[in-house]
């Protein structure tokens, strides 16, 4: 009983870790696509940034 409870608890915290990583990874991609000031990124992303209406220029 105690063991299965501990296992369930560990699985739940693993899940939370996975959820946190997914959210952070997603935010990182959105930042690269929409916000990175590097000029190479800006040029490649130009039309997409206008189309998605990220603030650009």
């Amino acid at each position: 009983m105690t063991n299965s409870f501990a296992t369930a608890k560990a699985a739940a915290s693993n899940d939370l870790l996975a959820i946190g990583f997914a959210a952070l990874f997603g935010l990182g991609l959105v930042f690269a696509a929409g916000f990175s000031h590097a000029s190479a990124m800006h040029d490649v992303a130009h039309d997409q940034r206008h189309a998605i209406a990220f603030p650009c220029h």
Partner: peptide
């Protein structure tokens, strides 16, 4: 236009990761 496709992949994959979280 290849740049536009690539960055749409990046942006929408990013949105998708946040959404599934």
């Amino acid at each position: 236009h290849i740049g536009t496709v690539a960055m749409n992949l990046v942006a929408y994959t990013g949105f998708a990761f946040v959404m599934v979280a």
